[in-house]
């Protein structure tokens, strides 16, 4: 992954039968002659790591305290917050929810984002209208949309109305008021909000793919699906990996929607690590416990990032 093997759009997009410029050992030799790159990445490291790692260290220290966030005399409790967390079924429920949530939302967003990007790169009229509609949810604050969605999915809300209209009255139900369905509603809301992001990035990435390769493939008789599968999909792999990482981190951090729409309920059905951290840190004054969950969140996110990076690299080879 990380630039050990810089790949051009051309090589990435190369499909059988096209001439891609060869990359190989020759290049690696030359790279060794390149100047040292540390100064280039220094500003980023200083800004992000400088500012945020202080916070991470601070959080790690607090996670060993029993502390209300105010008292000048926190009590050192070692690993007790961690032990308490690993015993807590709510924590494990949140982990389960997170995994399910990530798998579903990532898959659906990727599929929809790709589809929209491909369709809108085709000759569709009024493309800009569609783009704006798909994109607007990205800019809307969950705090404001939460009541709108509660109404939308309530027992006598618009969603059930639509179901009835299509003769599906039998399956109408109070979607957010049931442990069995609330999580799915939150997934739908998340997909609604973030498909715009997926779409915009795929759209930009697809613009990078050399049209002549697609033309060449078509001349070779490749159909639409074949072009998507063999040229476009591999051509946007970098974006997909990036989105997968973001999606995983986003799923781990999920907080806004479940907290605002269902208060992580009913009965912890929409509990996430983010909601646990918030509840413990702010309303429950258990800042130490909240910090311990944050540290675990951080570790999980790092592990996820590493797995995705490695897998992304393997598949790129």
């Amino acid at each position: 992954m990380v630039a050990t093997e810089p790949r051009s759009a051309r090589t990435l997009a190369a499909s059988p039968g096209t001439n891609a410029p060869s990359t190989g050992p020759r290049k690696r030799e030359r790279r060794a002659l390149q100047p040292h790159g540390l100064p280039w990445i220094l500003p980023g490291l200083v800004l992000s790591i400088g500012v945020l790692y202080f916070c991470i260290g601070y959080t790690a220290v607090i996670s060993t305290w029993e502390w209300d966030g105010l008292s000048p005399t926190p009590e050192f409790v070692g690993g007790r917050n961690y032990a308490q967390m690993f015993r807590d079924p709510v924590f494990w429920g949140a982990i389960r929810n997170t995994i399910l949530f990530f798998v579903i939302t990532f898959t659906v967003q990727t599929a929809l984002g790709m589809l929209f990007a491909v369709l809108l790169h085709s000759r569709v009229k009024l493309g800009v209208v569609y783009k704006v509609i798909i994109f607007i949810p990205v800019v809307l604050a969950p705090a404001i949309m939460a009541p709108v969605f509660r109404q939308f999915f309530s027992a006598d809300g618009l969603f059930n109305g639509i179901l009835e209209f299509f003769g599906l009255g039998a399956i109408t139900q109070p979607w957010l008021a049931q442990s069995s369905t609330a999580l799915w509603v939150l997934m739908a809301i998340t997909v609604w909000q973030w498909t715009g992001l997926t779409f915009v990035l795929y759209y930009a990435a697809m613009g990078q793919i050399d049209n002549s390769i697609i033309e060449a493939a078509r001349i070779d008789g490749a159909g639409n699906l074949r072009v998507i599968w063999s040229i476009i999909w591999p051509g946007v792999r970098g974006t997909t990996v990036a989105l997968a990482m973001l999606g995983a981190i986003g799923a781990l951090k999920t907080f806004d929607w479940p907290w605002l729409v269902t208060v992580a309920g009913p009965n912890h059905a929409t509990e996430f690590l983010g909601t646990i951290i918030y509840r413990q840190t702010i309303p429950n004054y258990d800042v130490g416990y909240g910090a311990a969950v944050s540290v675990v969140l951080l570790v999980l996110a790092l592990v996820m990032a590493i797995i995705l990076q490695i897998r992304g690299r393997e598949r790129a080879r």
Partner: peptide, 13 residues
């Protein structure tokens, strides 16, 4: 209670 009460917030719903 109205149907779906536990999916409702007192304010604003």
């Amino acid at each position: 209670m109205q149907e779906g009460a536990i999916g409702y917030a007192q304010y604003p719903d």
